[in-house]
Every structure is written in structure tokens, then in C-alpha cells.
Amino acid sequence: MGTYTARMSQEAPNPAAPHGISLEQTRKIARLARLALTDAELAKAQLELSAVIGYVERLRELDLEGVEPLAGVSGAISEGELDEPGQMLPIEALASMGPAMQGRFLAIPKVLDEGGGA
């Protein structure tokens, strides 16, 4: 008697399958996700993403013609509630969460060149 895990793992496609994600695609996904990955991480991610995407392809077996997508389930939430500002945390408290501050401002590397900007 196989367990669920053993049975389904065997169904995971190999990355050469049609649904496999290429290394180039993996690099693009990492860039979109703002994740700096090492070459080893990229290679591993390619295999694992291909396996997971291959697995979720099973949804295509289903006949979902005419089914409305359901993005969330929230019962009895208040509608038309006024969006009024309540008590807020002090700026110092919010700013204290950032890793680098200059006075009351979050510090980031320079984005525009000297004298730049439109």
C-alpha cells in the first residue's frame, strides 16, 4: 500500500517535460521577484519550479467551463464602512522598523544621477 506522498511524487514530471521551465525563464522569474540568486540556487529553482508547475498542470484535466473564479471567501463583512483615519502609530515607531534611516526618512541608495530628474 503506497502512501499519498510516494504515489504522487512519482507523478512529478521531469524537467524535460513540456511544462519544464528553462534556466532563462527561471532567471527572468528571479529578476521579476527581486531575488538575487546564486547559479546553484538558480539551477535548483529551475528543477523545483518545473516539478511544481508540472504537478499543478493537473488542473487542466478539469472541465471548468462557465465556472466563476472565486478569489476569496469572506462572510458578513461590513460594507460601506467609512474609511476614517483612526489612531495612528507615531512616525518614530514606524520608522524604527526600517534598517537605515536619515532623520525621519528611510534611506535608499541614490536613484537619480547628479542633477538628474525630469
Binding site: L59, R60, L62, E68, P69, L70, A71
Partner: peptide, 8 residues
Amino acid sequence: TALKVRRR
């Protein structure tokens, strides 16, 4: 597609 499965 996943959201449709969710509805079902």
C-alpha cells in the same frame, strides 16, 4: 483556473 477550482 485555480480560482475556478476554488469555486467548485
